[in-house]
Amino acid sequence: MTNIIAKPTSKTPEISFDAETNTLRVSGKSYPEDLYAFWQPITDQVQSLLNANTAPFIFEFKLTYHNSGTTRVIINFIKDAERLLVEVDREIRIKWFFDPEDEQTEEQGADYSDLCSAVRFEMIEEEVS
């Protein structure tokens, strides 16, 4: 069953959690006017979901644009996941989707990939509307 955590707006993404596959999905654009107000509750919820069990956890990102503030949020997701994997033996994966025409999102994915060691980061080329 998929729960919608945040509905999409023109500047914030849709965020949902699929409990069957332990997958958090983030899609759309992210440039909220108040980064903290939008993302902190999401980050808190992700922490709870990660701590709920030790089953494999997947982050799926299909972002067509995200601002530098959101970059910091994603860096912190990776940081927190890497820290958790030092203590617990489990699998955390990030699937980074990018449109083949979207060099910007592809490049950003490569940057995030470089930050991951224990977290498995996958770049997936897919047309994103």
Partner: peptide
Amino acid sequence: MLETFDDPNSRGGGLG
């Protein structure tokens, strides 16, 4: 990015 990543207190800044 790495400075933001490695500093446990960093919430980022100046990446824009």
